[in-house]
Design a protein around this nucleic acid. Structure first.
Lengths: 146, 146
DNA sequence: GGCATATAGTTGTTTAAGCAACTATCTAAA
DNA sequence: TTTAGATAGTTGCTTAAACAACTATATGCC
């Protein structure tokens, strides 16, 4: 069978993304049970700011694979929760730099721990080699469509 | 390294599901370009009805991995588009059986062709063996969390 | 300098997800 | 047969995605 020929039914789960949905739900549940009151989408923005604080909204778009309106509203909500602050750039007045507040910094350790724990639950019984291949496939899919 | 120990950064893409999002977006785009005016979520409901017409909403919940309110509203919208009809079950009056209309039946061939084409675009350069492993991993993740 | 174009971000609208609370119907057990 | 509990579906609310249309600022070219 050629590489790019598959049966419909086998591939449907790739489209619906059951697995990534399930991980997101479990992580959300784990957050809730531990008193972390943010959504996964909000967390995914914070995640990139923990890696590098002071990103612009456009950089957050690229990092999170979301469009500009989505980031505008996620930042709106994160600002309401007092987890980030918009700071207008002095060099380029079109740009908002997004900075973490102290409360957001406090969330980092616990939420990353929960994220790791969730992934370990999800990948129970899956070998490292299998995960590596799955990651390669997903990365390739992403590249093919970008 | 034990099977269930991974570095954070490596696994982040599992949570965000970039790949499945990218496939869904591409499929939506391909639908639009071919004049098919339904959402991917609506299509995923039709997909199961094409396999077996006359499923209950609860069966659609299980099949599509969505909760009951989501299916209620997807069926609402599909009914507005005159693609499905709710028919109250005679055996159990709590149950709505969902039936395809002729217009929905007409959509099947073309939309399944576009779905296959989209998956082939997505999986360009990925071997059948790699896809099999990726599918196993995703299935296992789903099972671990269900 | 002035104008076309590109870039950063916002707003409006529709569709959907997730959760809780609700109604209606069915089932099983006292 | 009545009543408690389970099941099927709906509604309300908040958050988010996708897309188009918009404002404001910056850049590059004449």
């Amino acid at each position: 069978m050629p590489n790019n020929q598959f049966k419909k039914s086998e591939l449907y789960s790739f489209i619906t993304g059951k697995a990534s949905t399930a991980i997101a739900r479990r992580l959300q549940k784990n957050f809730k049970q531990n008193g972390i009151d943010i959504t996964i989408e909000q967390w995914s923005v914070l995640y990139h700011l923990w890696k590098e604080d002071g990103l612009s909204q456009q950089q957050l778009c690229d990092a999170t694979f979301r469009d500009k309106p989505s980031i505008t509203r996620l930042v709106d909500n994160l600002e309401k929760l007092q987890l980030v602050k918009r700071v207008a750039s002095k060099d380029d007045r079109r740009i908002n730099m997004i900075y973490l507040t102290p409360s957001a910094q406090e969330l980092q350790a616990q939420s990353m721990e929960l994220a790791n724990q969730t992934l370990n639950e999800a990948l129970e019984g899956v070998t490292h080699g299998q995960v590596e291949i799955a990651k390669e496939v997903l990365q390739k899919v992403y590249e093919n469509l970008s």
